[in-house]
């Protein structure tokens, strides 16, 4: 594994990097790195460089600008990249929401019942 591949793997769950969004997408679509690179229109050797880009900014204008910059720099299919990133970001939001919900559920379960509740009844 090249040093760049190693580092790209290391940041695969770091939301600062585009790699985290691509990782979410590839996982949901069960794509290997080669298949993901092929889908985006680059070689598998170029993929780590794409993964090590900063994640696109969320604001509408900035998002399109960032996607175009990344696509032009690595000769990717802009439409595909936009689709993949939107899909990946939606998955990230879903995961964040479900882990937050799981956290609240656990916290609610841990909370002691109010003093006037009958035994065994939880709020």
């Amino acid at each position: 594994m090249s040093p760049l591949e190693h580092m790209a793997r290391r940041v695969a769950n770091d939301p600062f990097f585009l790699g985290a969004i691509l990782h979410c997408y590839a996982e949901s679509e069960q794509l290997t790195p080669a298949a993901l690179a092929n889908y985006l229109g680059c070689s598998v050797e170029t993929l780590p460089q794409v993964q090590l880009c900063r994640a696109p900014r969320a604001e509408a204008g900035a998002f399109t600008h960032d996607i175009e910059l990344i696509a032009n720099r690595f000769h990717l299919d802009t439409e595909r990249l936009m689709e993949v990133v939107r899909h990946g970001q939606a998955l990230q939001r879903l995961r964040a929401a479900s882990s937050a919900a799981a956290g609240s559920l656990l916290a609610a379960r841990d909370r002691p019942p109010p003093p006037d509740s009958p035994p065994g009844e939880t709020p």
Binding site: L18, L52, C53, R57
Partner: peptide
């Protein structure tokens, strides 16, 4: 704001 700058730096 260039998102490719991190990659080029690394």
């Amino acid at each position: 704001d260039d998102p490719t700058a991190t990659s080029d730096f690394i």
